[in-house]
Design a binder for these strands. Structure first.
Length: 563
RNA sequence: CGGGGCGUAGCGCAGCCCGGUUAGCGCGUCUGUUUUGGGAGCAGAAGGUCGCAGGUUCGAAUCCCGCCGCCCCGACCA
């Protein structure tokens, strides 16, 4: 490809709207242009890279027996109503204004299940792995970070159909392995975390992440290999336990202490003998939740423990009514009304605790949870903190931001039951198909790769994703016919070896060419200039290391093949 | 949706507070010329409904009102 004819609008400066490195570089290198918030055009060079990623996805999906579909973005709303997801998706789903009954699909469980219902009848038809690489539409409230969160984006979504739970385990495992291969082949440093399956339903889910400040998820990871989304992460931190001296309950005035920190500072109390009480209204019923000291309640954990997503913190008036006190003086003992009390596991059967007295301006000390109140249940409710020992081998946890590249789910029968996708087993009995769903954000792979592989000059592609194998750079072409002639020969020789070569044949200054080449980031640059050519040599520059080698023209082919 | 910021030439910005020539600057673009191993020099040129719509005023990029768009933080994120 001759660069003088190829549309690569590079930019000297990063547009002010782009904040993160990958977004800036994708704009500067001429890979994408933004059309609206969260909506992008892929320019030829960017699309070429995207197609390389898509090919890797195809190969690995095909390798586990996947069959590629192409499903429509326009979906009948009816089918979404049957699974209850019109409501569940809410504003995230785009609705068509001038054609009743159509929506833009944010994902494709419904359509997959629709086809399964049509044509899967027997256990003999199973298992199946169906996938596609297709544009998704989601009305994100706040698109951000370039292609990392868009309103229209490419997703590789796959769905497994099985006749048994063991079959689902196997399909899930195949995807897990395929995903590892995909990200490894793309050259991405990733980790896998256990995740919350949330409102998606199902019993198991894992996310494929890369560590990045540009990410929106937060994970706890340690050197032991432990990694979990903060929503579900746990640690091996010691429970508070019991102290031997079990004194009587004692009320004491704390007029200026509203927070746990106030108590620590004003009364010199140890944090792990303090119990913070919060009241939530869960499924319309008040529940007092006891946490150790400053531990943060994890709402995702609360959601799974109570198996509901209708909960909220109690309002101030409700607090007073329920407990008899305002924020800062609430505790498990002497509650005004009798309500359910749950406590975090760390507080299991603890004594010697201090908590609110349910009387404004007073706290109680020497609380014994086994003696002074009734804890209905101990649950894992806390959010782990930086530095806590990991449950695998005790090494300290790090809390990092992460970009979610892929997510795999064991769905179960939620969609097959809702849509009536059933099969007959070997005894002629009818069952709902057991499903899994597996997604990868295709553009996120590119942005994540760039986040991990750039320097001050630009992007650094690897062999798997690079848009061209080689960047041939001719210097002073219009003034030095011998350089031009040599470049033309090299171009045709290398192209003849089935290599993809981007030939910078533009009449530009060397500096412009070098800077563009470094910005675009093709792994190897072949630089042809008069001085070296007079000695029968050309230069090969390694983009990543910056290393330059002078190569005899007559062994250039071999040298290139050995790169 | 809450908070903050921004919208002036293809890109990056100044001007706005304190209204008043022909709205500037750098980069890029075009023409000519010189240059050709790290964004080169000289000379010339083109390019703007100052986001949109109302209002105040003799006069609005500038002041007021409404709307739209974009970015960031938060909420949200099957």
């Amino acid at each position: 490809m001759r660069q003088s004819q190829y549309f690569i609008p590079t930019l000297r400066e990063a547009p002010a709207d782009a904040q993160i490195p990958s977004h800036q570089l994708m704009l500067r290198a001429g890979l994408v242009r933004q059309v609206a918030s969260g909506v992008f055009t892929w320019l030829p060079l960017g699309y070429k890279i995207l197609k390389k990623i898509i090919e890797i996805l195809r190969e690995e999906m095909d390798a586990i027996g996947g069959q590629e579909f192409l499903m429509p973005a326009l979906n009948p709303i009816e089918i979404w109503e049957q699974t209850g997801r019109v409501e569940a998706m809410g504003d995230v789903m785009f609705h068509i204004k001038n054609r009743d009954g159509l929506v833009l699909a944010p994902t494709h469980e419904e359509i997959i299940t629709y086809h399964a219902r049509q044509h899967i009848q027997s256990y003999k038809d199973l298992p199946q792995i169906w996938y596609q690489i297709q544009n998704k539409f989601r009305n994100e409230p706040r698109p951000k970070s370039g292609v990392l969160r868009g309103r229209q984006f490419l997703m590789k979504d796959a769905y497994s159909l099985d006749s048994s739970w063991e079959g689902l385990d196997e399909s899930y495992r195949k995807h897990y392995e395929a995903y590892k291969k995909i990200f490894t082949r793309c050259g991405i440093k990733f980790f896998i975390v256990g995740a919350s399956s949330g409102a998606m339903g199902g019993k198991q889910s894992e996310e494929f992440m890369i560590e990045s400040d540009a990410g929106e998820d937060v994970c706890a990871i340690s050197d032991s290999g432990y990694a979990a989304n903060l929503e579900v992460a746990t640690s091996a931190i010691e429970p508070v336990g019991r102290i031997s001296e079990n004194l009587n309950l004692e009320e004491f005035p704390t007029p200026n202490a509203k927070t746990i920190n106030d108590l620590i500072e004003q009364f010199g109390l140890p944090e792990d003998r303090l119990a913070k009480s919060v009241v939530y209204i869960i499924d319309s019923k008040p529940v007092l939740i006891l946490m150790r000291g400053n531990d943060e309640l994890n709402e995702t954990k609360l959601q799974s423990a109570f198996k509901t997503n209708t909960f909220r913190p109690a309002e101030p008036e409700e607090l007073l009514q329920i407990t008899g006190a305002n924020t800062g003086s609430i505790g498990p003992v002497n509650l005004k009304t009798s309500i359910k009390i749950v406590a975090d596991n760390l507080l299991k059967d603890a004594n010697g605790l201090t908590s609110g007295a349910n009387k404004d301006g007073f706290h109680l000390k020497n609380i014994d949870l086994t003696r002074d109140c009734k804890i209905d249940e101990y649950l894992d409710l806390r959010t782990v903190r930086e530095g806590e020992p990991c449950i695998k081998n005790g090494s300290p946890l790090r809390i990092v931001k992460a970009i979610e590249l892929g997510h795999i789910f064991k769905l179960g029968t939620k969609y097959s039951e809702a849509l009536g996708a059933r099969f007959l087993d070997s005894e002629g009995k009818e069952h709902p198909i057991i499903m899994g769903s597996y997604g990868i954000g295709v553009e996120r792979i590119m942005a994540s790769y760039i986040e991990q592989n750039y320097d001050e000059s630009g992007i650094i592609w690897n062999k798997a994703l690079t848009p061209f194998d080689l960047h041939l750079i001719g210097l002073g072409l219009s003034k030095t016919p011998e350089v031009k002639k040599a470049c033309e020969k090299i171009y045709s020789d290398l192209t003849g070896l089935n290599l993809e070569v981007l030939f910078d044949d533009r009449d530009e200054n060397p500096g412009v060419k070098f800077n563009d080449a470094d910005l675009i980031g093709i792994p190897y640059q072949i630089i042809v200039g008069k001085k070296n050519l007079d000695n029968g040599k050309v230069e090969i520059k390694d983009r990543k290391t910056g290393e330059r080698k002078l190569i005899d023209l007559n062994i250039l082919k071999e040298a290139v093949l050995n790169l």
